[in-house]
Amino acid sequence: MSGILYGIGLGPGDPELMTLKAHRLISNARVIAYPAPDTGPSFARSIASDFIPAGIQEIPIIVPMRVDRFPAQRIYDKASSEISTVLKSGEDVVVLCEGDPFFYGSFMYLFERLSGQFPCEIVPGVTSLTACAAQLQRPLTSRTDILTVIPGPLPNDEIRTRIDNAQAVAIMKVGRHLARLKALLSDLDLLDKAGYVERASLPEQKVSRLADLDTDTAPYFSTILIYKGDEAWTLPPSFSS
């Protein structure tokens, strides 16, 4: 009997937003794996750190956080091989993933390599989109509105086309593209409809109307939410954070 591969969604960062199931599986884990940068601590591990049992086996998946491309396939091949060895021994492996495992989650690359060989279970997590909407105090979308999720690094023409065809828009992975995105949304006359959240649910989170944001740089974990549908939803006039 092989072990079970668990993909655990941890939510956006606040440990209290983890599900009870995620908490139970992590608290009883004997082997965990998680993405980690080549410098600094793992964000995924830090979310779950209070619930990780002492002395268990840990498999950090080192993913370089750089602008230039890195050999991602090789990284996930290596991690899958390490995890496969543990699963073949009959031990379960709990893989920690920020947000939700199947929403821009790194776990999906392990899943596509291992799911045909071992039993897998996915534990969904609170996504950054819903966490950001909660902090902005404005619903994401409703009824027949179309919600479009756009990666910030896409070129302006493609972003413009996708915004034109949607009533609600989430722009993720804003980071170093913030100034360009602000200029584009200003050109589309959408600044007043756009809210900005960085590091949602964490103590250092920042929440603002995009028009009021006084910087042109943003961390990787930052999101812009726009609503331009028929509902009379507006952003609060100001935010305390």
Rank of each mutant, 00 (worst) to 15 (best):
M1E: 10
M1T: 15
M1L: 15
Y6E: 01
G7C: 14
D14P: 07
E16W: 07
L17F: 13
M18G: 05
K21W: 06
A22R: 05
A22M: 05
H23I: 12
L25M: 07
L25P: 03
I26R: 03
S27M: 10
N28Y: 06
N28K: 14
R30C: 04
I32W: 00
P35L: 03
A36Q: 15
D38M: 06
D38I: 05
T39G: 02
G40H: 14
G40D: 12
P41S: 11
S46W: 02
D50R: 14
P53Y: 03
P53Q: 10
E58W: 11
I59K: 03
I59L: 10
I59Q: 03
I61N: 01
I62C: 13
R69M: 13
R69L: 08
R69Q: 11
Y76A: 00
K78F: 12
S80Q: 05
S80D: 02
S81C: 10
I83C: 00
K88H: 12
G90M: 14
D92I: 06
V93Y: 01
V93C: 00
L96W: 04
C97M: 06
G99N: 08
G99M: 08
F103C: 10
G105M: 03
S106G: 09
S106F: 02
F107K: 12
M108L: 15
M108D: 11
Y109V: 02
Y109F: 12
L110R: 09
E112R: 09
S115P: 01
C120M: 13
C120F: 01
C120T: 10
I122M: 13
P124Q: 11
V126W: 04
V126R: 00
T127C: 12
L129Y: 02
T130P: 03
T130G: 11
A133R: 00
A134P: 00
Q135R: 14
L136N: 01
L136E: 07
Q137A: 09
Q137M: 13
Q137S: 04
S142C: 09
S142I: 15
R143H: 11
T144K: 15
T144R: 15
I146S: 14
L147C: 05
T148A: 14
I150F: 03
I150Y: 05
P151S: 06
G152V: 05
G152P: 01
P153F: 05
P153C: 04
P153T: 10
L154Q: 09
P155I: 04
D157G: 05
I159M: 15
R160I: 14
R160V: 03
R160N: 12
T161A: 15
R162K: 15
A168M: 08
G175D: 15
L178E: 09
A179I: 11
A179R: 15
R180Q: 13
R180T: 12
R180W: 00
L181P: 06
K182R: 14
A183N: 09
D187H: 08
D189R: 15
D189G: 08
L190D: 08
D192R: 12
Y196H: 07
Y196K: 02
Y196G: 00
A200M: 13
A200N: 00
K206A: 11
S208D: 08
R209P: 03
L210T: 01
L210F: 04
A211S: 15
A211F: 06
T215M: 11
D216F: 07
A218V: 12
S222Y: 08
K228L: 06
E231Q: 14
A232G: 07
P236V: 08
F239W: 13
F239C: 06
S241H: 09
S241I: 13
